[in-house]
Structures are given as structure tokens and as C-alpha cells.
Design a protein around this nucleic acid. Structure first.
Lengths: 335, 335
DNA sequence: CTGAAAGCGCTTACAG
DNA sequence: CTGAAAGCGCTTACAG
């Protein structure tokens, strides 16, 4: 492959100094149009390729963003990651992606590694556990870091946090099921004690309290499998349940498939609402009602915030909630 | 954050020269154990962080792999990307991920950008179209590149290609349905004319020819939606079809949900086999039989190959096929 | 608006 | 086994 051309070669070819070439590379306004064109032409002629590592070393800005996700096999996160990456790409940033698989140890190691790579910022949906380790590593590096969906620490404000309005989602879903005439509504899935579970559940609990209904809570994994299991459990232990709010769509889709299996008419015998509104919701049978978190918009906003923090030093607000909206489909009783 | 310590600070602290520090960093065997320990200790004491950009500039090896995927919203690719990234991480490499959304223009731009970032290698599941542009960009850079699942060019061997044995998968699926007693088997989905579609279909066609059955082919999108639509079409145009082989699991899952909707008993009235064996197959109702591509294993192998190419100069074989295996579940008639 | 010089933090021969 | 020197390809002040 020989030697790749450098800005020196470009400068020679274009008949200018290498500083001028560098200025062209940085889109500096202080380069005359005609020289700019000449330099660009010279680059094209000799097949010049920008070397970011060299630039990073001098300017300490890599154009790399670290996206660290607790569970990338979950389609919700995969959809977010995809939208986020594409948005960053449009703004000239590349995304270094890492799945931590809910392992806090792997998480700290991953983050350290990405810091070595000189990421200009982090967006992280953290794994639970050993929060201090992770926080300390990031803090020591002083890299702009935005937490999404989950917060490593509820109390302090070391890193801004943005998430959908989980509580409102729980509220809307519950009110909707009540309006549809449900007399007994269960909440399924979500790890007990986690903030996200608490929030989604609290909307549900508030509404039920106002309507003097007793809650039925079956927390647990956030998987299709768990949703399927809970249908049997409901039939056995809580036969009066006629509506369920699921921690997320995976649980909801599991409920749907178990209902089909056991001949329960979803949308009539049992009304089901999921949470997140992943793409699958639209193509299940019946289509799954869900609290939409507007994943693509959320990803765009997140990208915009981390970029303006990096580029313009604008630190996002510490606590932000994005809008949610109930997407009503056949699983909760609409035609 | 002030100045981050450099190897010079470490050297001063440990009382050695910076070359020695560098050798420790590179795990060189020619550093005495005691000095190695002293240097490591000094690093910990002053909070040293390795600066890869500097190392990359000098050594031209970034420790970054570009993973370029045509459709990352498809769970099959998301599962692959996740397994691949985690495997790379275990080997000290970071993954820069990019979705091209089946857009060849975005693909060439993406690849150029990743080359600027100095990726040490590419793994790419390409988008179709303008293949030459993409090939030229990579070739000019001389970056080790492994094509997976799809090949940009069938004829030439510019970049090694590895994929599951699609044809064998089609064969197994068809034979299985025949054994289950199907009298008329359709092939659903897959873009017409694409190599992957051709291959999956050719296994199906061969088996049918041997058994003197007429094929029924309905190519099209590779989505749940398309699968749903085809159930109605089959009922209208090909009521005798009692088995379907789907281009992929998304199509298969769409078929299942439409069957539930229209009261068709999957596994009896209609036997269904998908392709890829994504995780959802296990939790649908009925569970979806599928040609397993062993995604996690495939990802591991891919990672190993690109790494040994980069690290040891071992270029993978030009055409490789990985094993597939039919996972038989209720949708094709097993209990 | 453009050029000459220094320097970012490493690795790499080369001595010793 | 360790040290002094050069250099990777850029950007950044600083002159002019």
C-alpha cells in the first residue's frame, strides 16, 4: 500500500504551505476560495486521506462517541442505538458501541477502554451495580456523559439524565384500561426495586388508588418468556384480572403469544398494554397497544444534546423527561 | 481537568526512561519483572491513562474495527452485531458501528469516514448497489475487510466472504416439510434476484424437483408485514399450500401472526419454517421452526478471522460457508 | 490571507 | 535490560 499521502504532499502538490492545507481541512473561513479549491483538487488528485489520529493527538478531539448499553439484544435498545448512530453520523461523529450485558464490571472496563480511545463523549444506559466504580472512571476522565433511560445514581447530579416520562406512561396506560371497562388491572414484569419499575408502576398505582381498585403486581424479568409464564399464573391466581400493563413490550408480546396459545381473546377477555412501542408492536396479533417513547425522536434529542455539550460546552439539564404517548391498538380493545 | 499524565510523568515517578514505560505498556517480555511492577504502580499512583491516538499515530494500528451493517434494525443483524462486538472487546478491540440502511451512498461515505478514523479492519454486511464505489474506497485504503452474509461482488475475490450455508438451509427446511407430509410448499419473501434469495431458494427448488412438486414462489420484502400479507394471498391464490418456507424469521413471524388472526392452525393446516433462528422464534406462538445460522458462533468465528488477519496477517479463505441446522419447533408440526 | 516552527504523546530503531 | 533521539501527521499560536 506504500505510504499514504500527508498534508505535506497535498501542500506540495497545491503549491501552498501545510498550514493552509490544515486550514482547508478545518473549513476555516480565512482561506481564499481559489486556494481552497486548489487544495481540494490536489487532495483528490493524489488520493489524500485525512488522518484523524494525528488530528486527535494535537487537538484532543476524536470525533468518536461512546455508546454504552446495558442490553443491546433487547430490540428497544437496538432501535435506539441504530437511530442514535445514524444521527451522529450525519453530524460527522462516529459511534463506538459496547454492550455491557448488565455486567457492571464489564461496564467499567468498557468505559476505561473507550476513554483510552479518546471518545469525546459518552451516552450510557447503565447496568445496575457498583455504580461508584463506573462513575469514578468517567469522572476522572472528565468526558461529557449523558445518562439515558436509567440513572446510575438517583441522588447526585454528576451526570445529566434524560428518560421518557415513565410515570406518565403508567398513568395513561392505566386510565386507558379503566376507560375500556377493565375491573381488575395487573402490572407485569420489571425488576422489583429498580427506579424504572417504580416509576412505571407508580403511575399505575396512583390511578388505581383514585379509582379504589386493588393492584395486582407480578414483577420479574423483562422478557417474552416471563410474559408467557405470567398468563398461566394470572389464570391460576388472579382469574378476575381483565387488563394488564406490561413493564415493556417484550413482556407484552409474551402475554399475547400465551393468550393465543390458551385461547384467551386479547382485547376482549384480556386487554393488554405494553411499554416502549418497539416496531414489533405493530405486527403482532393482535397489534400491541403500547406507551410510545418515540425512540427515533428520543435518539435525535440525545444526539443533539451530547453534541452541543461537546461542541459548544452546553451541559444538558440534570433531569429531563421526554414525552410519551399511548399508542392504542387492538390488544387493548380498539378495532 | 488539567493535564492528563503522560508516559513521561510515569517515567519520572517510576525512575525509568519513557521508553521503558512504553515497553511495559506493550507487554514487552524484555522488561524486568520488578521494573514492570514499579511502572504499573507509578501509573496507578498518578492516574495515568493510555492515549491510543498517540500510539495509533506512531504505530498505525488503532485497535478499532469498523462494523458496517445494511440493516441494523433487523434483529438478526442486531444479534450478530452484539455478539461480534462483545467478542472483539474480549480481545481488546473496540467496535465502531454503522448502519447503512441499505443505502450504498451512505455506505461509501460511512466507510470513508471510518477509514479516516484509522480502523484496523472492516467487517461488512453490504448494502446492494454501486458496489464498485464501495469496493474502490476500501481497496484504496488497503484495510483488511471481511464480507459477511452478503457479497458485494460474486465474481471477484477482492475481499473474503463468509456466510451461512444458505442453500443447505433451504434444502433441510424443504425436506423437513416433505417428511411432515406437506403436499404443496411455498417459498415466501426475499428480494428477487439477490444472491441470498437465490441460494435459499435453490435448495428448496432442488428438493421439490426431486419430488416432482411444483414450486410456489412469492418473493418480496423481508418483513413481518410482508409475511402477514402473504397469508391472505396464499389463501386466495394458492389454497392448496400446506407448508411455507420463509426467507427469514421476520417473514415467518408475520405469517404466524396472520394465521392466528385468520384462524389457520399453524403446525397442522399450515406448516411454517423460518430462516436465521433469531431469539424471537422461541417465544412466538407457536414456536417458529427455523434454519439456525448459529449467530453467536458465527460472530465469534468472524471476530477470530478478522483479528488474525489484522494481528498475524492471515487472510481468511475467499469463500466460506458456516454450518446451518434446522431447529424444529411447533410451527412445523412437532409437539 | 499564508508560512515557518513547535508540539500533541506515543513507538521505534539504535546504542549501550 | 534500559536510555536518548527521531518521528508518526496533524493543529496551533505566532509572524508577516
Amino acid at each position: 500500500m506504500g505510504q499514504r499521502p500527508t498534508i505535506l504532499d497535498v501542500a506540495k502538490k497545491a503549491g501552498v504551505s501545510k498550514s493552509t492545507v490544515s486550514l482547508v481541512l478545518q473549513q476555516s473561513a480565512s482561506v481564499k476560495e481559489s486556494t481552497r479549491v486548489a487544495v481540494r483538487q490536489a487532495m483528490a488528485d493524489i488520493g489524500y486521506v485525512y488522518n484523524r489520529s494525528a488530528a486527535t493527538l494535537r487537538s484532543s478531539s476524536s470525533g468518536l462517541i461512546g455508546l454504552v448499553i446495558n442490553d443491546l439484544r433487547n430490540p428497544f435498545f437496538a432501535e435506539f442505538a441504530t437511530s442514535f448512530q445514524m444521527e451522529l453520523a450525519q453530524n460527522g461523529f462516529a459511534t463506538v458501541l459496547a454492550n455491557t450485558d448488565e455486567d457492571p464490571l464489564l461496564q467499567s472496563r468498557t468505559i476505561s477502554s473507550l476513554i483510552e480511545h479518546g471518545v469525546s463523549g459518552f451516552v450510557i444506559s447503565p447496568a445496575y451495580g457498583q455504580e461508584e466504580d463506573t462513575l469514578a472512571v468517567i469522572e476522572a476522565a472528565g468526558v461529557p456523559t449523558l445518562q439515558v433511560f436509567r440513572a446510575l445514581s438517583q441522588d447526585d447530579d454528576r451526570f445529566p439524565f434524560v428518560a421518557p416520562d415513565y410515570k406518565l406512561g403508567g398513568t395513561c396506560a392505566t386510565e386507558h384500561l379503566l376507560e375500556m371497562g377493565c375491573k381488575r388491572i395487573a402490572f407485569l414484569g420489571g425488576l422489583n426495586g429498580r427506579a424504572v419499575t417504580q416509576e412505571r408502576m407508580s403511575g399505575y398505582l396512583d390511578v388505581l388508588a383514585r379509582h379504589r381498585q386493588e393492584p395486582v403486581i407480578l414483577t420479574g424479568e423483562v422478557t417474552r418468556r416471563f410474559g408467557k409464564q405470567m398468563v398461566a399464573k394470572l389464570a391460576a391466581d388472579h382469574p378476575d384480572v381483565d387488563g394488564v400493563i406490561c413493564f415493556n413490550d417484550l413482556v407484552g408480546l409474551g402475554v399475547l403469544s400465551a393468550c393465543v396459545e390458551s385461547g384467551i381473546q386479547v382485547g376482549r377477555d384480556l386487554r393488554v398494554v405494553g411499554f416502549d412501542d418497539i416496531q414489533d408492536c405493530q405486527d403482532s396479533f393482535p397489534a400491541l397497544s403500547s406507551v410510545s417513547c418515540h425512540i427515533p425522536d428520543f435518539a435525535k434529542t440525545t444526539a443533539a444534546q451530547i453534541l452541543s455539550w461537546i461542541n459548544d460546552g452546553v451541559r444538558p439539564n440534570d433531569h429531563q423527561r421526554s414525552e410519551v404517548e399511548l399508542a392504542i391498538r387492538a390488544s387493548s380493545g380498539q378495532p
